[in-house]
Design a protein around this nucleic acid. Structure first.
Length: 110
DNA sequence: GCGCTGACTGAGG
DNA sequence: TCCTCAGCCAGCG
């Protein structure tokens, strides 16, 4: 697939993350099926503006991009995302695994 | 074609 | 918990 389509799939998955839940770069990469976590990171850094980027976190629950760390925390608090005392997201509760089929843009879903 | 860079990850200390 | 290191994959000079 070309880059545009890849970007579109990643963003569409991020949009599907329910409020109060999060997913990881690696999970998104796996759901799309192409590239790796870093590729997803690049996409988010470049095109992630319009989507709820704060719901995409590191594999261990740390919030991405420390400069916006505070803004992300506010969003999560507002959505009721489970946090650990350490200031990281509680991945056991908050992890949302993307539905692989959702990454398909075509009329694959009934 | 080549090297650098990055919103990553997992293992080890 | 935090830090480091190696592996990884694309985009961009």
């Amino acid at each position: 697939m070309d880059r545009e389509e890849y970007v579109e799939r990643v963003l569409s998955l991020v949009e599907r993350i329910p409020a109060g839940r999060v997913t990881t770069y690696g999970a998104l990469a796996e759901a799309v099926g192409v590239g790796g976590p870093r590729q997803v990171g690049t996409v988010m850094a470049t095109y992630g503006g319009p989507v709820p980027w704060w719901r995409v976190v590191h594999a261990d629950g740390r919030l991405a991009h420390e400069e916006d760390d505070d803004a992300a925390r506010q969003h999560h608090l507002g959505e009721g995302t489970p946090f650990r005392p350490s200031g990281k997201v509680d991945m056991k509760q908050a992890m949302w695994w993307p539905d692989v089929l959702s990454a398909e843009p075509g009329p694959l879903l009934p």
